[in-house]
Amino acid sequence: MKIHKISLSSLFLIIFFTTFSISCSAQNVSTDKIEKKDKNKKKYKLPEIDLSHWSVTTPEINPKNGKVLNVEPPEILNYAKDDLLKKNMYNDSISGALVFYAYPTEGTTANTKFSRSELREQMVPGDNDKNWTFKQGGIMKGELAMGNVTKDSKGKYHKVIIMQIHGRLTNKQRDLIGQKDNNAPPVLKISWQDGKIRVKTKELKNLNATYEEMLETDAWTDDEGYTFKEDVGFGRFTLEVKVSDGKLTVSLNNNEFKVYDNIHMKKWGVFENYFKAGNYFQSTDKGSSAKVNYYKLSVSH
């Protein structure tokens, strides 16, 4: 029998590589366990919405003043921790949506009988007096979906206004016509109605009206409205509202467009405006409600 002699250095190398191999194997097993554990974890998504230039109104009553709950920046940024606010505005971390929940309550704003969970644009955070005109222009774009909505006694889904452009009187205009507040009509209302997107704008009743007469709410009336062809149902869709001097364009999924380029839009130039987005629920039926999911929302001027 032939005996092979092993040098001390060779023995050291054998021990080193054996130890290294065992260590790597253990590390690989450990890494595999971590990867499998990570795969089992739920992925949480957040909406792509910067709330620093939005206030929100919900159906809740603020116990501090007895009025409808309104939260402005910077407090709105903590909506997920606000016990009263998060009843009607909260994250769906699975789909990545900011959910706006509304139902009939006594918590309504002036000049309406309907409740809302709706954002109001603030160009200057916390200030409603700084707004924009059509001449200055603006773009609002959102990706959203109807979460769920109840039906009326005839079996039709309740209507929900999901986007608006609201007019506003300056303090000077308010005082000029002797009005008690700065309210002006909404020039644009976009609704989800039975799975379709419907648009309504304002028209001036008398095209020869004076400047002071045009500032009055009753000088304006709704147009006949327009319904986009695509049935969005309860799926995601994208809406874009683009405003320029005397012109208003609404697009659905960058595929269908409704353009308002007429005398009424030009006349509307007397007003300042602000964007709104969310869930302005158009029902007072007992037990009715709706949820609107916003995944993305942006505004530029």
Rank of each mutant, 00 (worst) to 15 (best):
K141I: 13
G142M: 06
G142F: 01
L144P: 00
M146Q: 06
V149I: 08
V149T: 04
K151I: 04
S153R: 15
K154N: 13
G155W: 10
H158I: 00
K159Y: 04
I161S: 04
I162G: 00
I162F: 02
H166P: 06
H166T: 10
L169W: 04
K172Q: 12
K172Y: 08
R174M: 12
L176S: 11
L176A: 13
Q179K: 12
K180P: 14
K180A: 11
K180C: 09
K180D: 09
D181T: 03
N182F: 10
N182W: 08
N183L: 11
A184S: 05
A184Y: 05
P185C: 03
P185W: 01
P186L: 02
P186K: 05
V187F: 14
V187P: 04
L188F: 10
S191I: 08
K200R: 13
E203M: 12
L204R: 05
K205P: 07
L207C: 05
L207G: 15
T210E: 10
E213H: 07
E216R: 09
D218Q: 13
T221A: 13
D223R: 13
D223A: 09
E224T: 14
Y226R: 03
Y226K: 05
Y226D: 04
K229C: 06
K229S: 14
V232D: 00
F234N: 07
G235Y: 08
R236L: 03
R236I: 02
F237G: 01
L239V: 00
V241T: 15
V243M: 12
V243L: 13
S244N: 08
K247M: 14
L248A: 13
S251R: 15
N254G: 14
N254M: 12
N254E: 12
